[in-house]
């Protein structure tokens, strides 16, 4: 069957070979700045603690788009109901202004939450704790809204191997509630199960690396991206353009998400992409 399709293709597109060369080979690696928002502002902390205000999310979003960001992620870390209510208005404003896709995550508990965010103009939603509590939510979203808009965020940390544990094959554990609660769930098994339930992408955050500027967790990203049939967005620890080269070239991530290095203006998205292109990583240069 797949043989036939290839024949169909070559039969239908008898373009010269030079055409194929200029086409390149498929998708670009994506750079995704992440904006943690609460009460209508962008905030950033280290290991989910010590939040500080880093600016107006709409302005930041437009800036990142102009720098060449491929997508944006908005993570609602509102602590109160009042703060949370501001997110819908924010999403509508962002959707009016942006011409690139964006994902909204944080605090999503039900399919109705998902539909409301998509109605406001979000292209994708990202679910985390709610999916851990109720895995069927992933299926519900995939069936009702399509896999393409269903991102499952997984916060994971390395399990410290103890000498007593004999056959524990679990290397990474899922943590929830901002990293405060370990679940004992094997993060890789969970990721695979999400993919089977219809998740379109996995956003994999290394709790150990998050906010530390120590580079992405390459062994973790590599393990997930080489074995999952869906794209893996690596998150946590981006330090400099070299971190991105490593996470794409060495660890095989499909996309990389970062906050601090962009918010603190250590590097622009354009600088990161220029370096990636130099190193032979396929990126969208605009």
């Amino acid at each position: 069957m797949s043989q036939n399709k290839i024949l169909d293709r070559t039969g239908e597109f008898s373009e010269p070979l030079t055409m194929a060369e200029s086409l390149g080979s498929g998708l670009c690696k994506r750079i995704i700045p992440c904006l943690d928002v609460a009460g209508g502002r962008t905030v950033k902390g280290v290991k989910f603690q010590n939040l500080r205000d880093v600016g107006d999310p709409v302005e930041l979003a437009v800036q990142y788009q102009e720098q060449g960001a491929d997508e944006l992620m908005f993570l609602d870390i509102s602590a109160t109901r009042e703060e949370r209510a501001t997110v819908y208005e924010l999403i509508r404003t962002v959707a009016d202004r942006l011409s690139i896709p964006f994902t909204v995550g944080g605090g999503i508990r039900t399919l109705d939450d998902v539909k409301r965010l998509l109605d406001c103009g979000a292209d994708k939603v990202s679910v985390n704790s709610a999916a851990v509590d109720k895995p069927a939510l992933v299926e519900e979203i995939a069936i009702a809204c399509g896999s393409q808009c269903c991102v499952v965020a997984i916060d994971a940390r390395a399990v410290i191997a103890s000498c007593e544990s004999e056959s524990s094959s679990s290397v990474y554990e899922v943590v929830v509630r901002g990293g405060t609660v370990g679940t004992g769930m094997d993060a890789f098994v969970w990721a695979r199960s999400c993919s089977e339930r219809g998740a379109g992408e996995v956003l994999l955050t290394s709790f150990d690396a998050d906010g530390t500027l120590s580079g992405f967790d390459l062994p973790m990203v590599s393990m997930f991206s080489s074995s999952l049939p869906i794209p893996v967005i690596a998150s946590g620890g981006a330090r400099d353009p070299g971190s991105f080269v490593d996470v794409f070239a060495a660890a095989g991530a499909d996309a990389a998400l970062a906050a601090s290095i962009f918010h603190d203006r250590l590097y622009s998205v354009a600088e990161v992409k220029a370096r990636l292109q130099q190193e032979g990583v396929k990126v969208r240069i605009c």
């Binding site: 797949s2 390149g24 998708l27 670009c28 393409q148 379109g200």
Partner: peptide
């Protein structure tokens, strides 16, 4: 027709691709 999924080319295709 449907893309043939491979390790490199996941299906669905989600992301930025070059058109010529």
């Amino acid at each position: 027709v449907r893309y043939s999924a491979t390790r490199v080319h996941k299906v669905p295709q989600i992301g930025w691709n070059k058109i010529v």
